[in-house]
Design a binder for these strands. Structure first.
Lengths: 239, 239
DNA sequence: CATCATTACTGAATCAAGTTCATTTTTGTG
DNA sequence: CACAAAAATGAACTTGATTCAGTAATGATG
């Protein structure tokens, strides 16, 4: 087998793997989790059922890979959207819009189909988990720099803000999915952010007292400690 | 068939129905959604598999009934807890504690097993949906009277507050379930409510740094660090 | 370009869990 | 006690995931 041929073959394999993932996401989006049988996915990808199992160990692995694909794409888009936003507020806004829209669209895959696998201890070893961590890192970055700029309160832990942010947004998306009408993403997100931002923003402060400086310093030390814990601790990294 | 006999028989039927529901919730709690097969549930209730289908049309109906049971119980407890709390803040706190704890305990049933059925349009016709609405009514009541008392901002819609509250709490519960250690409910809930309440409350006079809060926060971080060190230790021992 | 080895693919067979149903057991009544 | 109605059972059936024995495509080699 020559080098060139090897490359071509690998490319073909990767291309087909990609086709299966794309088909999987499409079937979930268009037919829902209930109807996303292996047979339907194989058909959508133009393959026999058995072939799917040459590329993915089982259905769970396939869904995990599809979710990884979702998060990889979402992270790229989130990073670019955030990079284009000048201040903390608009960064949070564009991340929230993006997250709400994507999660709403791919709810059957992200929420319905994945739910059952999350609790298993092996989940933490998967690529999907790692990509999810990378994705929530975008939020963490916004918040950390927000704290540094004084836009965000320094006395809150990032994981707590994360739970409030993603939890609230995803609950909105779920509620929106229960309604039959298509949601007004902008209005939904604005409503939610009104609450979230008020909870998370730095209070406008006046005249510094001497003691206040010390307390502020303590607060920022807390943030640093948590920072260290965060990198050691993978426990709270979920969306 | 006499009146008395009829009553006895109906009671017996209801008693058995209850036994099945109790068994269902227990199996989900103790073995998780994956292992909650009809055979396991039947065994736990001391019945043959087929018998379950005399009481519930299919597995979906059984789960719906179990969820209804869950919400009925939760609503009773929430109403009583709230009735005993004097002010808006403590009402929210006790509801949040209760919700977090129960959802955490019955996550496999409430979140994993139900997820797939929620999006179906028929869900809105079920008893579970109605009971869920009644349950969120407790929260709505707290918020409405909070607005009336001036504790809660009047410019936010109740549904938006609801999404933020339940979404955030449930996301915390989910994160907590992914960790292996049992959660400190109080600390989790306090963290979340710090954000939620600040977002939802009428603005307090600002500028002053709340030294007591910072101290409390330092204490909780210390506890977290200790927790972390302890769990790192046990991890090492487990291998 | 014919041969062969390797790799990719297929769909029928197998397995597992939910569901049905013919049969058996229990219950209550005359 | 005899018997009709109700309740319960578990083996058979259905459906969807997974495996596997066999077939087709690919590409290296003489």
């Amino acid at each position: 087998m020559t080098e060139a041929a090897a490359k071509t073959r690998r490319q073909k394999v990767e291309q087909k793997e990609r086709a299966i993932l794309t088909a999987t996401r499409a079937v979930f989006r268009e037919k829902g989790a209930e109807e996303a049988k292996i047979s339907a996915i194989a058909q959508a990808a133009g393959l026999a059922e058995g072939t799917v199992y040459l590329y993915f160990k089982n259905k769970q692995a396939l869904l995990m890979a599809a979710v990884s694909d979702f998060y990889a794409e979402l992270t790229r888009d989130a990073e670019s959207a955030v990079a284009q936003s000048p201040d903390t507020g608009s960064q949070v806004l564009s991340l929230a819009r993006l997250h709400f829209g994507r999660v709403f669209d791919e709810w059957p895959l992200i929420a319905e189909a994945m739910g059952p696998y999350l609790p298993s201890p092996e989940y933490r070893e998967t690529e999907a988990f790692a990509l999810n961590r990378r994705y929530v890192g975008v939020f963490d970055g916004i918040m950390r720099s927000g704290v540094a700029r004084g836009d965000i309160r320094a006395d809150l832990s990032i994981p707590a803000m994360r739970d409030a942010f993603y939890g609230g947004l995803e609950h909105c998306a779920r509620s929106a999915r229960l309604r039959t009408t298509t949601p007004d993403i902008d209005a939904e997100v604005r409503q939610f952010l009104t609450i979230f931002m008020a909870g998370v923003m730095g209070r406008p402060s006046h005249g510094e007292i001497d003691g206040a400086r010390v307390v502020r310093r303590l607060q920022s030390v807390i943030v640093d400690i948590e920072e260290q814990m965060r990198s050691a601790d993978t426990d709270r990294e979920q969306t």
